[in-house]
Design a binder for these strands. Structure first.
Lengths: 344, 344
DNA sequence: TAAAATCCCGATAGCGTTCACAGTTTTACC
DNA sequence: GGTAAAACTGTGAACGCTATCGGGATTTTA
């Protein structure tokens, strides 16, 4: 019974025996190395397909000292941003022949960082993409120190990291665009609902909002600011709080589209017409935002592309390392743009 | 230069040498085996932490003939359903100590199935979760045949699979609930916007809609049906098409919430009030749906829980197999429920 | 006190590949 | 025809760990 489900796996030795060649020759055929005659190659190939031989990737990794694996540290796939990022990463990785080891860290568990680090090292990842946008400083440095000797790291959506590449969307610029658009449309009392302020991207978006107000000589006081958590619910609650603490409010920059949706909902409940009584701009340009009522004006950025770039950058560095060349990490910033619709 | 970035990894041998014991003893300490005195255990442990030794997972997998790895085949993380599923899978997997090998298959590429299959086998996954909801029949069978000898499979959101467990949300029942609710509210000309009809879940939801209409002795003609692609855009276009081909339409069951949002948008443009002139019910209960205008009545299901269950089921089967016991695959269906809000 | 059991620990042999090197055969050229 | 180079193939030793077995030291049992 057990043997029915567990037929011994076909190994390279059996293929070699059947084909009447050495193990090494089979290896050469499998890996497409030269130095094997067409004739034997064909014979070996035939045996391989007949026996349905699949090289054992684990043994291969051990022998060749290369795992063909990239580690990805992320916060999950539920939010739009991370999901886009991971999609891009996954696509580019499989295109380049890398396997992915996905590590989701739970911010609630303080020693999750250690678990993740241990996993990455023990699985011999050859590179790491840090797509977890928190900046606690302390923990990151520890992570950095532990991983760096083993594998190069590319950071996404983070502040500058000495010695490593950081790829970013220019959140600050995007937020500035959004806010300037509100100003251009005549709004003067512009509040902001930020993301969780522990996140670099949320901080940057707030700074962009400040930039725009400052260069228009408009005030930005703390009562114009409410911190949200990216959810529509927090956007809704955020607007309620804003109008309470800042009654002259006539526009809101919501730091993502979900929160903007919440703002639209709350505005409706308050009897404030958008864009007439209240201007709203979001961030992300999620596919649904065009179908909000009114259609949401928002900031578009190419997160999927950012994910792809991260893999390519890592690939480049790893290749260079393999060839013994010194690899210089190159950071990069992608520019977002404004998508004007009806909400402002 | 190269050596600066590539400090030789600490191996078990070095630990053994430093601690003055055999390699085997270190192995025992690392794996928490008994039969090692407290004294030597402490000594070894000390060396381990001092040298920052991390066991090489790849070597371990090869020697122990167990990869600690589960394969997950999915369509991506962009849609709500898959993202929820994957979240649950990931959580439960790490709780149980499994690593995940995520394989995204691109429906556009016909031989992606082969690539995925080859990857899973070559990495020696000990179990597979098939979370890719397409039912092409042909391809699945091939996959099944190739993987099954190596590892047990659990299918998600699929029709019955002989010999394997299938975990499902009762989509048919959920859709029936939604449609019955519309009928109960007095709507009589109920259209449906389906998901891509190649998907089992989309088919089931359509059947549920039919069930409800049939038992209320209401007709369900093909002009009441439009096929969407889960996107808000297709929901918008879907309603336009429905009103054109079925003018008496007074309610719509949208097979997911995004499409429902599109329907709301199109209804607004057509000057149809919801729920007054048009009843709308969705499916999924995405967090945003409560903030649609009007708040969406929809069907709630526990996809995350389904993902967790899938891992547990696989775990159970694998454990049984390891202990030589025959494992019987147990399928399971989760019941969704209706969340009544304002759109019907 | 001898026999048996228990507790520790080490030596050896793999796991399924690839790598470095060595060997053998064929081809090329003068 | 001889020699050097190329083309092809095989051998043995890793890679870093665990499984298995066996053996010495210590304790328990009769």
């Amino acid at each position: 019974m057990a043997n029915v489900n567990h037929p011994r796996r076909v190994t390279i030795r059996e293929v070699a025996a059947q084909a009447g060649v050495s193990v090494q020759t089979v290896s050469r055929v499998v890996n497409g190395h030269p130095d094997v005659s067409e004739e034997t190659r064909a014979r070996v190939q035939e045996v391989i397909t007949r026996l349905r031989y699949r090289p054992n990737g684990i043994a291969r990794s051990l022998a060749a000292q290369s795992s063909q694996m990239l580690g990805v540290v992320a916060s999950g796939f539920q939010l739009f941003g991370p999901a886009q990022l991971l999609t891009g990463i996954e696509q580019q990785a499989t295109e380049l022949g890398w396997h992915l080891m996905l590590q989701i860290v739970d911010p609630a568990k303080p020693n999750d960082y250690d678990r993740v680090t241990a996993n990455l090292i023990s699985q011999n990842v050859e590179g790491v993409i840090w797509a977890y946008p928190e900046l606690t400083g302390e923990r990151e440095r520890a992570f950095h120190q532990q991983i760096q000797p083993h594998a190069p790291i590319v950071f996404l959506s983070m502040g500058p990291q000495p010695g490593s590449a950081v790829l970013n969307v220019d959140n600050r610029y995007g937020a500035r665009l959004a806010t300037e658009h509100l100003i251009a449309r005549g709004y003067r009392h512009i509040g902001i609902i930020t993301g969780p302020m522990a996140l670099w991207s949320a901080q940057q978006r707030k700074l962009g909002w400040q930039d725009a107000l400052a260069s228009a000589k408009l005030p930005h006081r703390s009562r114009q600011v409410v911190e949200g958590d990216w959810s529509a619910a927090s956007g809704d609650a955020g607007l309620m709080k804003l109008v309470a603490q800042f009654p002259q409010l006539d526009a809101v920059f919501a730091s993502n589209d979900q929160m903007a949706l919440g703002v639209l909902k709350a505005a409706d409940r308050l009897g404030r017409r958008v864009p007439g009584d209240l201007g709203v701009v979001g961030f992300d340009d999620i596919p649904e935002s065009a179908f909000f009522k009114p259609a949401l004006t928002t900031v578009h950025h190419e997160l999927m592309e950012l994910g792809r770039l991260a893999v390519r950058e890592l690939h480049r560095v790893i290749q260079a390392k393999r060839e013994g060349k010194p690899a210089t990490a190159t950071s990069l910033v992608l520019q977002p743009w404004l998508v004007v619709r009806e909400s402002a």
